[in-house]
Design a binder for these strands. Sequence first.
DNA 1: CAACCGACCTGTTCGC
DNA 2: TGCGAACAGGTCGGTT
Length: 350
Amino acid sequence: MPELPEVETVARDLRGLVVGARVSGVRVGWLRTLRSGDVEAFERAVVGRTIVETSRRAKLVVLELDGGAGPDGVPMPDDGLVITIHLKMTGQLFVVRAGAPEDPYIRLVLAFEDGRELRFRDIRKFGRIGLAWRDPVSGDLRGELGGGRTFKGFGPEPLDPGFTARAFARRLRLRRGRLKPLLMDQSFLAGVGNIYADEALWAARLHPLRSAASLRPGQPSRLYRELRRILGEAVERRGSSIDDYTAPEGDGEMQERLLVYQRAGEPCPRCSRPLRRIVVGGRSTHFCSWCQRLPPADRSGAASILRSMEPRPGRAAAGPRTGPSWTELGGATRRAAATRRALARASQAG
DNA sequence: CAACCGACCTGTTCGC
DNA sequence: TGCGAACAGGTCGGTT
């Protein structure tokens, strides 16, 4: 669930909690949480080093480390080593005192010399923690220590002041795919996931199945503008608290401002026609088929997807289930999620 | 290059 | 009431 705004919030919250903390030990509860799978190598690399900054790149939380100390206690030069944390869907980070009670979902712990711990909690075990390097020239993340895969190149940061509408349009011109998967392609643009892709496309009045090549003048800059506006507001509001997302210093409130995500069947805030849900690239996609038109050229390839669209009037009596009824479940789901988050926080509070 | 699928995981919710 | 299927979705690797 965490996308750019949520990960940014976690990185910012952590800054005040872990900058200056020196790593004294590592505890691994689920081996595959470590990208390299090599606990000893990870320990050797990070124990004795101090976290000097926290940041975000794409959907990665980045903990920047100093050079640590050599055998004789002499400070070692900064080699740009960083710890990378990908929360994937259910990852959470907490800072607590050592010995605080913990539940069975703690997958990795960084112990600090001051008696506190950074705990990575992840119900579904998809999250990954690794080691990488900050390239002194480009400033971007490089490689992976310990035999893990290298990061594929991340695209530009949508909120980077240097990322202009012109640069976005230029990038768009190089691609031919559909807009929704394109926005979520981390090598095209960094940090956008399912929620904010849907919101931005609706705000820009562009159909998720629209091909990038079919955009008319003015549309790329509109998409650029809406995407930045929504991501910016979401960062201000500390992200959307949906399902398992929570930040070290508390939930966000952007979920109250989401206009189409998980709102299939509800009236479109712009035209009042019912919002639709389709599956694109295996992911739920929410849009308004009136406000977000598909040009004839894009229709043939999209026909099979659009045929499975819901909600369908009068499908209650018979026929296969085509998907959950978000309209009726949204509230209950969100309440359950809030309860889950509260429990998670309580179990980490110590 | 683009699209799609299965794998990775567990908890929740749904239909029967 | 219980049971199994569907679903949530970020990313990677493989195939078409």
